[in-house]
Design a protein around this nucleic acid. Structure first.
Lengths: 350, 350
DNA sequence: ATGAAAGCGCTAACAA
DNA sequence: TTGTTAGCGCTTTCAT
């Protein structure tokens, strides 16, 4: 026995003794049907468990209540939050979201866009894999709002990002305010604008305080746990280790904490750690991590809203608009940062 | 200026000087077209940047290369992993995934299913909000594979779960093997089968070792951080606190660790902690958490594969099959569990 | 206020 | 091998 087929608008019409057009009318709240007829139709719909076919409707109307979302990795908490925000707003507006991973693969990203295109999505929110992808082709077909990561340097178009520079600057100021002067940074991917900006904010903060960034205190990571661990080990092994370390993302912070544990260096007594990226568990570490919290959920919401507005406006690519909403990150001061104890640390360094 | 419309199969046909049906033929690799004609068509498709409209195709064929996925909360790492697994398999099979949150709201869950239904998805993977939802209506329309959580007690249908009982049993055995006898449990939601099974596994383990579960050592939580914290505080405040605690999910473990920190109880020296649910950060806690790791990614993959198989078979609801694939969880022994030091703890307890 | 008819972009019979 | 025709389920004029 085969699957029970869906009831169509004609089934409903027949059962209610009206024409399909009339059913369509009540379906779309046109309000030009007598109450009695409407009643009958609604009964019929219930009886047949009728659900209008979105695809047929879209085919006819040329619109589609589906948006796409492309993100690099759901397992990273920040992106998961982004996704939640998008879904929430989309749902509220009666839209569904077609999801796909871009998994750091540029070719995959292209395939994703093509797929969204094939599904005739009304638009998409995308968190780009890197800053070299061209979206021109896709953009001619449907609006895209970029979130967190811009697709090209000098991008002009709709986007929601956070002010990484300001956040890194504030983080640096916090460390300096505590009395630190020997501050190290474990930097992230420099092919991403956000990565560059975090470095820039750090630089600026140091400069304003007339503090030099020593060469050996500038370490290049790649956002992985492993790199945080390695760079951390290098920093701690220095003849004169820093008294504070600014780690440029959550994963690297994890690796760094591991390195501290291995070196049996107490945090924050001997060394302060400040993490870019907050995550739910940061508050449960010992010590609780001082971190820069990016408003992932809000970014997702804003991006979705911006997209939906553009979709509603129904304009062509030339008029998409170019607002880049820049949100602020929040510095959450907890226990991993404190006043420097230079002597203690230097005594231990070998 | 309005958005550039998509090229249709007729545009391609016209440009290539053939009929739409011929284009459709090469599009679907029917292979009954001369190479020369095929060539011309492909050129035309490229020139027009043609992408076949999935919706129109689905409307015609009655099939749809989209599956739905419903999960309670993406921000929980376990569910995010589930989602990744599903997406990965779906993509590989040329399917897209329509995502939605069920956010612990049964009504929302219904709405989600209706939405999937309206989009005529080929099937869905769902992680049910709770064990009282009826899916009969939806199931008559498309196959559903349940994952991690079953929709009703005594559910018979396709599902991928993990053997919670065995995992909890093994965890308990580990604690007992270490020499613990005063073991407490912070239980999770008992309206979910999985929650019940974890308790059952614990019971069985204790029973086999002829160990009693003291009333005051059995604490009921609700999977929230807060409840883990509260129950933890209660346990530690007991005249005779336990020497080991089995916490039934990741969030409650977080709360529990917080409670330990407040009581300044050393783990594992004074008390051992074993967590159900592993997560990436568990290995970076101090101490590193011993935990039961559920294979979230693999569960997602298996569920998607099962669903896709059922979809491919194209049978009716009566023949959907009822395999419940039960995966094993893995006990990851790290540093939060050790031999009991009863004296030390009792001395401290007031 | 309601219905008849056309057609969105595609594919599947069938005809040529 | 290729083209013609019909129709998937819906909405939208345009008559009535």
């Amino acid at each position: 026995m085969s699957r029970k087929p869906f009831a169509t608008i004609r089934d409903v019409a027949r059962l209610a003794g009206v024409s399909p057009a009339t059913v369509s009318g009540v379906l779309n709240q046109k309000g030009n049907s007598r109450a009695e007829v409407r009643e009958r139709i609604e009964q019929a719909m219930k009886a047949l468990d009728y659900h209008a076919d979105h695809m047929a409707r879209s085919l006819k109307t040329g619109s589609n209540k589906v948006i796409g979302m492309v993100i690099p990795d759901l397992r990273n908490f920040f992106f998961a939050e982004l996704m939640c925000g998008v879904e929430e707003v989309a749902r509220a507006a009666g839209f569904s979201v077609l999801f796909s991973h871009a998994n750091k693969d540029q070719q995959l990203e292209r395939a994703n866009l093509a797929m969204l295109s094939a599904h005739r999505v009304a638009g998409a929110v995308v968190c780009s894999t890197d800053a070299h992808t061209s979206y021109d082709g896709a953009l001619r077909r449907f609006p895209i709002v970029f979130v967190d990561r811009l697709p090209v340097i000098g991008f002009r178009g709709q986007a929601v990002t956070v002010d990484n520079t300001a956040a890194a600057w504030e983080a640096t100021r916090h460390l300096i305010g505590l009395g630190h002067t020997d501050i190290a940074i474990i930097a992230g991917r420099t092919d991403l604008l956000a990565g560059l900006q975090r470095i820039e904010g750090f630089r600026r903060g140091m400069q304003e305080a007339c503090l030099a960034i020593r060469d050996e205190y500038f370490r290049q990571g790649d956002y992985s746990i492993e790199s945080g661990y390695r760079r951390g080990l290098e920093l701690l092994g220095l003849p004169e280790p820093p008294t504070a370390i600014f780690s440029c993302n959550n994963n690297m912070t994890l690796g760094l904490m591991q390195a501290l544990a291995e070196y049996k260096v107490e945090c924050p007594d001997e060394i302060s750690v400040l993490s870019y990226d907050d995550f739910p568990w940061a508050a449960f570490f010992r010590p609780q991590l001082t971190a820069v919290a990016q408003p992932g959920l809000e970014m997702g919401r804003r991006a979705a809203r911006m997209l939906l507005d553009t979709v509603a406006a129904g304009k062509g690519p030339e008029e998409y608009g170019q607002e880049n909403v820049v949100l602020k990150a929040e510095l959450r001061i907890r226990q991993s940062t404190g006043r420097p104890r230079i002597a203690a640390l230097k005594g231990r360094a070998q």
